[in-house]
Computed example of a mutant assay.
Amino acid sequence: MDKAIALIEYITVPCGIRAADKMVKTADVEIMEAQTVCPGKYMVLICGNLSAVNAAIDSGRLEFEENIIDSFILGNPHDSIFTAISGVTDPGEVEALGIIETFSGASIIVAADTAAKTAKVNLIEIRISRGMCGKSYLMMSGEIAAVEASVAAACINASASGMLLDKAVIARPDPKLWEKLL
């Protein structure tokens, strides 16, 4: 369990940029994304080995605790999370489409990890807060039973933190819809 991914969302942009700088100065981590999120929040997504990610996130929390909206650390994340974040996943054979929407970027990545580890699904896209006023969503495909199981497990996870907004499972989505989604 040497690979890890983590995210912290901050209330303000200056705080988020200062925290991102402190995190990369604290440990050898890669910044996957560091950007503003509507409405004026800032998100820092990092990856690296677990001990470095833990150290970086601890430094990003310590000084800026009062400005944190949400955060997570995942040791040994499912490999498909990385391609889904970049939006380059092939959906494969589509029998069903699963969609989950949450109130935060942190909660959608944890939900995606849960979904991918629950059943054999393809994580198609993880949209982290961009263009959604800070909300995030996940799309996955696979066999109907697998998608239903993965959506259910991920929703339990997101509901526990109070971040679940909505979910859907669509059996045999129309090809016209796929053209617009991908």
Rank of each mutant, 00 (worst) to 15 (best):
L50H: 13
I108P: 08
E63F: 15
A56C: 03
I109N: 01
S159V: 01
K167M: 09
V53M: 04
D28M: 15
V53A: 07
V88A: 03
K117Y: 02
E95I: 00
A146N: 13
G105L: 05
A112Q: 05
V94L: 12
K25E: 12
K176L: 13
I109G: 01
I68H: 04
I124P: 03
C155V: 02
I8E: 03
L7C: 08
C133A: 15
E93M: 01
Q35R: 15
R172D: 12
A158R: 07
I100N: 02
A84I: 01
S80F: 00
I144E: 14
D70I: 08
I144F: 15
L164E: 06
C47G: 09
H78N: 13
K41C: 05
D21S: 12
A27D: 10
A149M: 10
I124T: 14
Y137D: 06
I68G: 11
H78S: 13
K135D: 01
S159M: 00
I108T: 09
E179M: 06
A145L: 01
A34N: 12
N122Q: 09
I68Q: 04
K167V: 00
C133P: 01
L177M: 12
W178H: 10
I85E: 03
W178E: 12
S141E: 05
P39N: 01
A34Q: 04
K176V: 10
S71N: 14
S71C: 04
K135P: 08
D79R: 12
L74C: 05
A52T: 06
I68D: 03
S141D: 08
E9I: 05
E63L: 09
T102R: 01
H78R: 06
C47H: 14
A19H: 09
M1R: 03
T12W: 03
A20D: 03
A20M: 08
K176G: 02
M1G: 15
E65R: 14
N54M: 06
L62F: 12
E143F: 10
A116G: 04
E93T: 13
K3M: 08
A27G: 08
I109D: 02
I124W: 07
S150Q: 14
F103L: 11
V110T: 13
E148N: 15
A152T: 07
C155G: 00
V88F: 13
E33H: 13
L45D: 03
Y10M: 01
F103H: 06
I57R: 13
Y42D: 02
D166H: 11
S136W: 08
D28I: 11
E63W: 11
M32N: 08
L164I: 04
F72D: 05
F103K: 07
F82G: 00
T26S: 12
N157Y: 00
R172C: 05
K25H: 09
T114H: 07
I124E: 10
K120F: 02
A19W: 06
E101N: 09
E148M: 11
A96R: 04
E143D: 13
C47T: 15
R127S: 14
S71M: 10
R127W: 08
